[in-house]
Simulated scan of single mutants.
Amino acid sequence: MPYFTKTYHPPGTPPGTLVERAAGAAGALSIRLVDYTDQDYLDKVVDHADECRPYLERDSITWIHFQGAIQAQALRNIGELFDLHALAMEDVMNSGQRPKVDEYEDQLFIVMAMLDVQAPHMKVDQVSVFIGPNYIISFHNGVHDPFDPLRKRLKKRSGRIRSLKADYLLYGIIDLIIDHGFPVLERFGEEIETLEDTLLAAPTRSTLGDIHRLRRELLLLRRMLWPHRDIINYLSRGDNALIGAGTLIYLRDCYDHSIQIMDLLENYRDMAASMHDVYLSSASYRLNDVMRVLTIIATIFIPLTFIAGIYGMNFENPDSPWAMPELGWYYGYPLVLGGMLLIVFGMLFYFRRKAWL
């Protein structure tokens, strides 16, 4: 099952080329404009990106968010409208990028991986963010808009988000993306507990498939979430003029959250690996248990088969001194059966005394 769609260019394609997305890759494109100061707040959905251009020239913080699938020509127009670098536009279009941060003349371009908490299974979406002196332009290729909680904070003026610059809004976006990992990892923890109970009770072949799927998903999470630490570490060093000194301490707190997520992820990976070993040990133990029972049954029937084979030859000749005298006994048959039963009970007693049963 593909967890994210990775698009790429054919070899030899010039840099900055935009390739059309496959149909149905995500939801329909919507454009959300948020413009605010300490006193004013505007939040609306616009039909065309050029409607947002005048707000960038105001003395306010402008956040333009593109949600859903975007076609190459529309993205090309957006890049020209807001003076975005062609290489960054290529990374926006090619979803599935490794999280990273690139620095341009008066912009920072950040790619992050966001976990979809509403999806029934583990799903990773790409979030691309441009930050300038007084604006943020973000792209999210998923179906659901994950930034509604942040807009509610902006609308209510909760905390200091309305009184600070665009770098603090960037911190809010990054923090929300990072914190999306906690509920997803909580689901992984519950699944690991269920698999552990199944392993101890009655593991089946499907249990092994669930363990392999869990390990594969955790490996993908590690590959997509591990670079977040490098991104936040780069931003929190304070080497870029777009990131103010007052925001650095909040970015360090966000860095701590990313460390917590990676610690949980590593613990779950170790637990998934140990569950695989437990399953193999349990399967080996059950196989050994079955083989022990079959070996005991076969061992019990070996002398019985020997006795039955001897008396099954039916060499009965009254004139021969080597004939079987037992064949002519009046109680020969019940005596042989009784001797077989004594052998069976004697062997069972011996096996139990040796703790083989």
Rank of each mutant, 00 (worst) to 15 (best):
I243A: 01
R216F: 01
L327R: 11
L220P: 03
A323R: 10
E191L: 05
I300D: 05
H180C: 05
T5F: 11
S30F: 00
I296W: 05
N314A: 12
L214W: 08
D145T: 02
Y8L: 06
M291W: 06
A74N: 05
V46N: 03
H121G: 03
R216C: 01
L304I: 06
V278F: 04
I177Y: 15
D167E: 14
G246Y: 13
E103V: 14
G209Q: 13
Q126P: 03
P321W: 00
I161D: 07
L221R: 04
T207D: 12
P203G: 03
G12M: 06
M324T: 07
I261L: 15
T295D: 08
V19H: 05
H140E: 09
C254V: 11
K155Y: 15
N134I: 00
D175G: 09
L235P: 14
R187E: 06
G142C: 05
R222C: 00
C52G: 13
L280D: 08
M347V: 11
H276F: 10
L29G: 05
I310M: 03
R21G: 01
Y234K: 09
L164S: 12
E190L: 12
V45H: 06
G332H: 14
M347R: 08
F4H: 07
H257L: 02
I136Q: 02
H48V: 08
E193S: 11
H257E: 03
D40K: 14
E80G: 09
I232A: 04
K123Y: 01
I173A: 06
G238V: 10
H228S: 10
L154H: 05
R53D: 12
D289S: 15
D277G: 06
N77H: 13
D47P: 01
F4E: 02
A49V: 07
F301A: 00
F82N: 05
M262E: 13
L235G: 08
G172L: 06
F301R: 00
M114C: 14
P334H: 04
H85C: 02
P14D: 06
H48E: 09
D40G: 04
T5M: 05
I61F: 10
A272T: 13
Q73W: 02
P303H: 11
L199V: 10
R76T: 12
A355I: 00
I31G: 04
A26L: 09
M262V: 06
A72T: 06
I192R: 12
M224F: 03
L287F: 08
Y135E: 12
K6G: 05
K100C: 09
T17V: 07
H140V: 03
D83L: 15
T198Y: 04
S128K: 09
F315Q: 08
P325E: 10
M122N: 01
L150Y: 04
R58N: 10
I296P: 08
A25D: 08
H212M: 09
T204D: 11
L87E: 07
P334I: 07
H276R: 12
M114S: 15
D289G: 02
H228R: 10
L235I: 02
Y330G: 01
H144N: 09
A72I: 05
Q71E: 13
I177F: 10
P318E: 07
H180L: 01
H48K: 12
I173T: 03
